[in-house]
Every structure is written in C-alpha cells, then in structure tokens.
C-alpha cells in the first residue's frame, strides 16, 4: 500500500506522487490522475470541471432519492450553484466529491421535507395495505405465503438480477421508495427519515416493512418465478 501526495495542476488533472507506505520520504513513482480520485483534497478544482467529473455520480445520487429525472437534474444544478457560492468555505479534509454530495444531500432533504409537509399522509400508513391484504387473512395468518426461491445465492452473481432489483425499487410508490432509499442507501435512522418525510418513526418502520414486502413480491414475480409453495 502506498500513501499519495497530490500536486494540483492548472489543467484540472494532477500529478500524484506515490510514496512508500513504509518510508514516506521515499517516492516510488508518480502517476497523473484526474481530480476524481478519492484522495483528500486541500483545495477545490476549477468549478468548470465539476460537472464533467462528478455530474453523473451526483445525478445518480439525486435520481435515487427524488425518483424523477427532471427533478434530479434540477437538484444537481442547484447543488452545483450552491457549491459555487460556498466554495470559499471548503476547508479540505474531505474529497471534493464528498463535499459536493453533502451539498446535494441537503438540497434533496429540503425538497423532500417541503413535499412531506404537503403530501397526503394517510395513504402511507393506512391500517391496511393492498399487498398485506393479499398476503394475510383477516386473522393475520398467511393466505398467500412467500414462495420458495430457487438459488438466491446464484442470483447475487448475476448482473441482470440487480437490474431487476433496481426496477423493483423504482416501482415502489413514491414515498415508500423515498423512505426505503433514505434508509438503505443513505443509512438514515427512522427518526431522521420521519423528520424528512413528516411522519413518526413508527410510521417509517411500517413504510419500510411495506416497501420490503413489495420488493420481495416483485422479485418473486420477475426473477424467482411463482415457484411451488
């Protein structure tokens, strides 16, 4: 393993000197690399290069949470504009990409919060959910149990399985999907998700349970087939 020291260049690319990990005073080589590397940065690169280097990653982040391409594009633009305004406050200690993603995350949480206040909340956590009604009898016991899955471990090795999984997540109703993304992709706790979406932690847990039930069901239909019970 090597430690690396960075020397920013005017071109937005930089020369990274590869230092020996054992003896940091010894240079064992140097490589030229784009600014997208994950080494800590002391200063920001030219804002004109941000879009080129991080645009796709920021867009994916926004799309996963907002679930709407045009809103995700707007969020990326807002975040980059805000970053431009705030660039003097960058203190280093994190990568440029982490810093930009942090700004984007704040923009997205603001949007979701505004939407959460306006949203119809009853539908998220109504006592009965259509899929729950399908699975369970009135007594709470299974009437349509989960099917047997053939070789789930094997599925983890197939790229198509993950494409299916993404589709299943995309098909979640909007707010269930937002709760699910904030939990599983951002690692937020129930209370934080609740604050963002304008519901209680308890409601968040119900929403997550319904989201997982839907994804499970979707995978069963699109990947594992309706196997025997």
């Amino acid at each position: 393993m090597n430690a690396a020291a960075m020397a920013p260049s005017a071109t937005g690319r930089q020369t990274v000197e590869v230092l020996s990990f054992i003896d940091p005073s010894r240079t064992i080589g140097s490589i030229e690399t784009a600014r997208t590397c994950t080494t800590m940065a002391d200063s920001l690169s030219d804002p004109a290069t941000w879009l080129e280097h991080y645009g796709d990653a920021l867009y994916r982040y926004a799309l996963g949470r907002l679930r709407d391409p045009s809103r995700a594009e707007d969020a990326v633009q807002d975040a980059l504009l805000a970053a431009l305004q705030a660039r003097d406050s960058f203190r280093g200690g994190s990568t440029e990409q982490t810093w930009l993603t942090g700004i984007l995350r704040h923009k997205i949480l603001d949007q979701l919060r505004a939407q959460g206040r306006a949203a119809e909340r009853e539908t998220d956590t109504a006592d009965e959910d259509e899929l729950e009604r399908l699975h369970f009898a009135g007594t709470g016991s299974w009437q349509q149990p989960a099917g047997r899955w053939n070789d789930p471990e094997g599925a983890l090795g197939e790229q198509q399985f993950f494409i299916n999984l993404e589709h299943c997540i995309e098909e979640l109703p909007e707010r269930l999907g937002q709760a699910f993304m904030l939990k599983e992709f951002d690692g937020l706790a129930g209370a934080e998700i609740g604050q963002t979406l304008g519901v209680t932690s308890n409601n968040v847990w119900v929403m997550l349970s319904r989201a997982r039930m839907r994804i499970r069901n979707c995978l069963e239909h699109t990947w594992f087939g309706r196997a025997t019970r």
């Binding site: 994916r60 980059l80 999984l165 599983e184």
Partner: peptide, 28 residues
C-alpha cells in the same frame, strides 16, 4: 442484495443526459 446494489450504484447506472449537462453547464 441491496447492500451490493448500493455499492455498485456508486460507479455505474444512469447518466446525466447531454441536454441536461449542457443546460447545467450554461447555468454554471
């Protein structure tokens, strides 16, 4: 499976369209 997807998603997946990219670049 979600854990693996989240890890993979950081490096691949949907990209900004050329139009959106141009629009944002102009705005910046």
């Amino acid at each position: 499976a979600i854990r693996r997807l989240a890890a993979a998603r950081a490096t691949r997946g949907p990209r900004l369209s050329a139009e959106a990219r141009a629009r944002i670049a102009r705005r910046l």
